[in-house]
Structures are given as C-alpha cells and as structure tokens.
C-alpha cells in the first residue's frame, strides 16, 4: 500500500479561468505533505485534481499530468471511480450521510461500490476503521445510531473512518480541522501521525503550527492577485520551509509578514 504522487506541469481550469498554473511536485509515500498558502491560491483545486474530484464542477478540467506510481490518473482509459477508490478524501466540513447509521456510514464505500462482503467481514471493517480513526471507544455501543447525531469532531473522525474503510493508497485532507475545537483537532493530528505509517497523506491547512506539527514536507502556494493563477512557490522539508525558506514570499508568509 501507499503510493507516490507526481504532479507534472499541472494547469487547473474552471471553464476559461486558469486557477492554478504549472504545478510540479512530488508527494512521497508514507509521509505527510502539507499544502499551505493564502486563501484562493489554489490548494483545494490542486488537491481535488489529484483524485479527479475537480472535474465534477461543470466546465472544469486540467492539463498536465498527475502520476500515481507512474500511472497517469488522467490517462485515456482511466475510470475516475477507480481513481477515487484508490485516493480517498476528507473534506473541510464533516459530511456523514444523514440517512445512515454510524455503521452504514463506515461501510458505505464498500457496500455501495458493490464489492460484496459477508456481514462478518463488514463488522471487522467497521471496528478496524473506527479504531484507526480513534472513534471506536466513543461509539462502539451505538454504531446503529445515526451518524448525524455525533459531535462535529466525532463526525469528522467518522468521515476519516469512512475514507480509510475502503483501504485507499492515498488520503487527501482539505482543512480537516478547520471546523473543530482544539481538542478534536489534536485527536485528528494524532490520528494523522498514526495513519502516515500506512498511507500517503496530503493535508491542506491554514494553521502553520499544524503544518509544522504533522507534516514532513511542506508546499507553499501563492497567488499575486485575485483573477491571476495560483503557483507553487516552494516545496521542501517542513523544518527547512519554516526555519530557512529559500524564497522571500515563503518567508513573509510563514513569519506572518504577509501582504
């Protein structure tokens, strides 16, 4: 499990609007890579291009290459459904399925993509996924209750459990803690620490301390002005980006002297 991602000359469009220009970077397997940068610089767009969620926006497309262990995610015969089964995603706002119980939420990916399993196996998947998401202890007595009845932080961990239940190679997280309190945030950061032994993780965050805490590699994106495309400014070891950035823009941003 766990694969490398290479972005090569990636341009991201919304209709005629070029939102992100010429991104080339590598995400290493079994590591956490953080995307940081000001609002609107295209972090989410890059993330969503990796698992082909970007093209769900009408008129949106990309040019360039996204390689998953040298296999082009945008290749001619590639099925986006299979891409998304391999590259899981956690969103900014927890979005458990409101009609489903906690149990059904966790197994939704398996059940609804019709890879049939015996219910005994599903029970195992639920326990394993909820344990990996550090949620098992809190919900083990009520997995048949609605997922929407959990607190925000628990819902977000439920969504993480849901994402890892399908055993992806890569986990993309778009500001997974921005709607959460500090304690839930810590719980999820601990979780990311544990998950990075198994998965390739990319996390978008506005919280510089968080990037410093959880990631080994950091990529800084920036945008000159509204309406211009965002760019990758610098990528490197997290410690280097925060202590000794090569580019002036990065230094201004991470030291808070921005704009």
């Amino acid at each position: 499990m766990s694969k490398r991602i290479d972005l090569v000359d990636l341009d991201i469009f919304y209709g005629d609007f070029l939102a992100v220009e010429q991104v080339t970077l590598t995400v290493n397997p079994r590591s956490v890579t953080a995307f940081i940068g000001p609002s609107g610089c295209g972090k989410s767009s890059v993330l969503r291009s990796i698992n082909r969620m970007h093209e769900l926006v009408p008129g949106a497309y990309v040019t360039g290459e996204v390689l998953l262990d040298n296999e082009d995610v945008y290749g001619v015969d590639v099925d986006p459904v299979l891409v998304r089964r391999t590259i899981g995603m956690v969103f900014q706002r927890p979005n458990p399925f409101p009609t489903m119980s906690i149990y059904d939420n966790v197994v939704a990916g398996l059940r609804l993509s019709k890879r049939r399993r015996r219910s005994k196996d599903l029970d195992d998947v639920v326990e394993r996924s909820l344990r990996s998401a550090n949620l098992w202890a809190e919900v083990k007595d009520r997995v048949d209750r609605p997922g929407a009845g959990l607190s925000g932080g628990q819902q977000q961990r439920l969504c993480i459990a849901r994402a890892i239940a399908i055993e992806p190679e890569v986990l993309l997280m778009d500001e997974p803690c921005s709607a959460l309190d500090p304690i839930s945030t810590l719980a999820i950061e601990d979780l990311i620490h544990e998950l990075k032994d198994t998965y390739t993780i990319v996390i978008v965050t506005h919280n510089m301390q968080q990037a410093a805490r959880v990631s080994s590699t950091t990529a800084f994106f920036n945008v000159n002005a509204v309406g211009e495309p965002g760019r990758l400014i610098e990528i490197g070891e997290t410690s280097q980006i925060f202590s000794n950035p090569r580019v002036k823009q990065t230094e201004d941003y991470v030291s808070g002297r921005f704009g």
């Binding site: 698992n51 969620m53 769900l56 459904v81 299979l82 891409v83 998304r84 089964r85 391999t86 899981g88 995603m89 969103f91 706002r93 979005n95 458990p96 399925f97 409101p98 939704a108 990916g109 609804l112 993509s113 019709k114 969504c159 849901r162 994402a163 399908i166």
Partner: peptide
C-alpha cells in the same frame, strides 16, 4: 447538499449508486 454527493463520489461510489 452537494457535500453529500461529493462525499459519496470521493469514496469511489459510482454516480448512479
């Protein structure tokens, strides 16, 4: 909400499902 559709699609569930 669109977030439900996106959440489900991101799990690799086919659109009709």
């Amino acid at each position: 909400p669109n977030s439900l559709r996106e959440g489900a699609l991101a799990l690799g569930i086919p659109k009709w499902r």
